[in-house]
Design a protein around this nucleic acid. Structure first.
Lengths: 225, 225
DNA sequence: ACGTCTTTACTTGTATGGAAGTATGGCATA
DNA sequence: TATGCCATACTTCCATACAAGTAAAGACGT
């Protein structure tokens, strides 16, 4: 018997939080939107308490702001937070790239190549969600290849704000360019060239430095800072 | 009138969370300890609801685990999480050091020197909390000097698990050694030697790689993974 | 027309009771 | 002695009622 599959039904509050979190990240609930404990509770058909606790978790994620006696609002995308997460990603993934370039685990590199193929397919069909998910897996595989899976989990939390921005920007920016950069990273890794791998990764992640101001200028209502 | 000083009384739940968080980080509430909504509420003299919400926030911080219908427990220190945070710190602060070595903002470097003096004083009087707080400010000043204050805020969240470990290890390990490393970092920054600054920082933060296994072996009940 | 006060309809925060689930000790039984 | 059942005392979870605060619309006097 597979004991690992024994699960218990998650609490209502947990499910509500999960639901809201996904909707915020996908841009379904836009930045600045007001949400109400009463309304959400009524819409789902439960009491306020679980919804309230979901709001608290959402606030801990940095995705909502609870203003006492005033209301709860979906957080605007903090430009400072996005740039901070980007800075951290560049530093960390540069180190990861150096490590992987030195070890070159064949299976992981092959799986990264598979993701690039998936990204190409998603680009042609125009499926933004598939593209973003594959993009995430590509970078996650790098952490796995470096034997630092836990690091990716931490980065994923930091990326919360960045993810929302991506769902906006992916429609506007050139996905083919991103795929090319991924290929350059993988090529450098395969050669075992640590310096080239690090440079390619830093170049790739610095792309965002130009995109973020453009996005913020295009939709100022969604951003802060 | 100083409008910045206008504050409203924080909610009970917020205060309880703050209180619990500090106690966990200082090791007052040891890893694995069981805490109860009813008990804490009775001890403070309030109802269970605010305490419950404080527990939820504490769980979001990774400092507690709520097991439905079983109880709430102070999280054990995850060795994997500590090592992950350490890895991220090394990568990020190495980049920060390179930046600061190139710009050399005089005022910030002076303030870092002040912190080293405070650490020396705290070492002599044996005040562990003062030492840790000054240590944090030293590294935070590095981020400020690099113009990346938001980065430190993110690192601070990641450090949650690491902080608890430090309150254990600071009593056991050589603080004088740490001070010497801080001095080496500052010296390299003052010289404007980016490579030496990065190396000194990486060496400093790799110290933990030997300390963590020792701590985990000494008190296995407090750790997991 | 304008400013001020009051009413009213919201919001989140807290208290409390009970529901559902879990762990433990006692006790009868083999 | 060992085993299975069960009462009991917990735990967290959810629903509900009320308290406290905010904000905006409207009445009213100037």
């Amino acid at each position: 018997m597979d004991v690992a599959r024994i699960t218990i039904a998650p609490s209502t509050a947990f499910q509500v939080h999960d639901w809201l979190r996904k909707r915020v990240q996908q841009g379904d609930l836009p930045p600045g939107m007001r949400i109400s404990e009463t309304e959400v509770a009524a819409a789902i058909g439960i009491s306020r308490q679980p919804v309230r606790e979901a709001f608290i978790r959402l606030a801990s994620d940095g995705l909502a702001e609870v203003r006492p006696q005033r209301g709860t609002y979906i957080s605007k995308i903090s430009v400072a937070a996005v740039l901070s997460a980007r800075f951290i990603r560049e530093a960390v993934e540069a180190d990861l790239a150096r490590i992987v370039a030195q070890t070159r685990p064949a299976e992981m590199l092959d799986r990264m190549a598979d993701e690039i193929a998936l990204q190409t397919a998603a680009d042609q069909t125009g499926n933004v969600n598939d593209f973003i998910e594959s993009d995430d897996r590509f970078h996650r595989l790098l952490a796995l290849a470096a034997g630092q899976e836990a690091v990716w989990a931490d980065l994923d939390r930091l990326k919360a704000q960045m993810n929302r921005l991506r769902h906006l920007s992916m429609r506007a920016f050139d996905r083919g360019f991103i795929i090319g950069q991924h290929q350059q990273i993988l090529d450098a890794l395969r050669k075992g060239d640590a310096n080239a791998s690090e440079t390619a990764m830093r170049t790739h992640l610095r792309q965002m430095l130009t995109e973020v101001p453009q996005m913020a200028a295009a939709q100022p209502d969604y951003f802060t800072d």
